[in-house]
Computed example of a mutant assay.
Amino acid sequence: MKTDLTLYDRTLTLFRYPKRNNETLQAWDAGDEYLIQHVEEMGLPQGQHIVVLNDNFGALSCWLSDKHHVTMVSDSFIVQQATQTNLADNDCNPVSFATSLEAIPANVDLVIMQIPRNNRYLTWQLAQLRKTLPSHVPVIAVNKAKEIHSSTLKLFEKYLGETKTSLAWKKHRLVLSQANSPQAIEVEPFTVWSVDEHNMTLKNHANVYSGESLDQGARFILQNLPTGDTYKHAIDLGCGNGVLSVKLAQLNPKLNITSVDESFMAVESAKQNLLDNVGNSERFHCIANNCLDGMPAASYDLVVCNPPFHQQQAVTDHIAWQMFCDAKHVLSTGGQLLVIGNRHLGYDIKLKRLFGQSNVSVVSVNKKFVILQATK
Rank of each mutant, 00 (worst) to 15 (best):
S269F: 00
S299T: 09
L160F: 08
A234Y: 00
Y347L: 01
L248F: 07
W124E: 08
K352F: 02
V142R: 00
Q26Y: 03
N252I: 07
L153N: 04
V142I: 02
Y34Q: 14
Q80E: 15
Y300E: 09
H318S: 13
H68M: 05
V51Q: 00
V39C: 04
Q312L: 09
Q223T: 13
H38S: 06
H69Q: 15
I257A: 00
N224S: 13
D229G: 09
V39M: 03
D301C: 11
Q80Y: 06
L248R: 03
Q84K: 14
L129I: 06
N21W: 01
K254F: 03
D109S: 13
N289V: 08
D4I: 10
D89Y: 11
N252C: 15
S74C: 11
K367I: 01
A127G: 14
N93A: 15
K2C: 01
G47C: 10
L153V: 07
G240N: 03
L274I: 07
L110H: 06
E262P: 00
V360C: 10
H69E: 14
V52R: 03
N252A: 08
H285R: 15
T375A: 08
D229R: 12
G217W: 12
N22F: 12
H310T: 11
T191F: 14
F156M: 09
V370I: 15
V192D: 10
T258N: 02
N21C: 07
G335I: 03
N256S: 15
V330C: 08
S135V: 10
K154A: 14
F309R: 11
N273L: 11
R353E: 14
F220E: 06
K170I: 05
P253E: 08
A266T: 00
T163H: 09
C286V: 03
L155I: 05
R219K: 13
S166W: 02
T6V: 13
L25R: 11
A179W: 02
S100M: 08
A297I: 01
N119V: 09
V243L: 01
F15H: 15
M72K: 00
R10I: 01
N54G: 01
